[in-house]
Nucleic acid binder design. Structure first.
Lengths: 193, 193
DNA sequence: CCTACCGATCGGTAGG
DNA sequence: CCTACCGATCGGTAGG
């Protein structure tokens, strides 16, 4: 006999979404297990049915954040295009993901690994996974060998991540922002794409 | 009669230094009054002799941070020099201050105003004081009018602030970093200043 | 600036 | 996933 229509018995996904939203908006310490639980309709103790600790919850959010970022960037890498266009598209994708309202990706920006010292190594490793992708992208850029590509990567990431703090929907689109940042650094005129 | 040699009876400054260091390194919530007190040789309750609340303590640190940033930048503005050289010097000053080990300035980067909702308005106003200075600086830059100067300012701040997270003493100097960032955006060749 | 303390809140758990 | 709870820690205070 089929299981009768009952309420979804596994709300791990809703819980993870709530956690991501709280961590992203308020940071790690200010996001209490109670607030996270209540915002997805659970009681405080119920979280521990899904995750054994607050740290495990953060780790799960981080993992999903990196997974989404990596997937988004690899999607932009798939079809061949000029390196500068590729950079523009990747930047646009990155900025879109870290400015999205309930983005898992923005947790990587808001919550630094030392917020949870006991898992900071794993958090750092997850960040590095993504940064390695960006490193390869910048290394493939055809620029004068006099420029410091490591620094260039850090400038691009810094400028892009900072958008998270000042972006307001309705003014400039994330695509426009990415296009202008890249244009600013590589002297490309604004293209009316 | 002169007051006899007794232990400094006003350790507000040491307390403020300890608070700045904790806020900068661990954020607002993770910096407990107890830890701040102990790290400057006080007992937890003694902080309240100097400041009435944790929020007041953060506000004082913020104020000093902005004061130092503004003073540092105005110092770079004093003697006349070409706009681009001025930008380079200001960026170098900014980066030096936010990477200094126990910098008040770095608290402005690490602790966002919403960490203390009840004083977030005052915190934001303090940040704005500094950003206004930078706005004027960028507005004076002689660049093609096709570039978005607001975005240019945000890119510069984003790139500069991000240094706080990856800087390691002993590799590149803060001056070199500033010089290369500005060179990267304005196409100036590295000058051997 | 210390002593001694308080109410509130936190992450987490036993048992169902 | 809920009920009922615990020890630890937090920001803050009275009185000196």
């Amino acid at each position: 006999m089929p299981t009768p229509a009952k309420r979804s018995n596994n709300r791990t996904q809703e819980l993870l979404d709530s956690a991501a939203e709280h961590f992203s908006k308020h940071g790690y310490r200010a996001s209490t297990m109670r607030k996270i639980a209540v915002s997805c309709g659970m009681l405080p103790g119920s979280i521990y049915y899904h995750y054994p600790s607050k740290e495990a919850l953060l780790l799960a959010v981080y993992e999903e954040g990196v997974r989404q970022l990596v997937a988004g960037i690899q999607e932009q890498m798939e079809n061949p295009k000029p390196p500068l266009q590729r950079l523009k598209d990747v930047m646009a994708q990155h900025i879109a993901m870290i400015t999205a309202p309930s983005a898992y990706a923005s947790v990587l920006i808001r919550v630094m690994p030392d917020a949870a010292p006991e898992i900071s190594d794993q958090l750092i490793e997850l960040r590095d996974q993504y940064e390695t992708l960006l490193k390869n992208l910048v290394d493939d850029l055809p620029v004068s060998q006099s420029v410091n590509k490591s620094l260039m990567r850090l400038v691009l990431i810094g400028a892009a991540n900072h958008v998270h703090y000042w972006y307001q929907p309705g003014t400039m689109s994330t695509d426009e922002i990415a296009s202008q940042i890249v244009g600013m650094i590589f002297g490309t005129e604004n293209d009316p794409t």
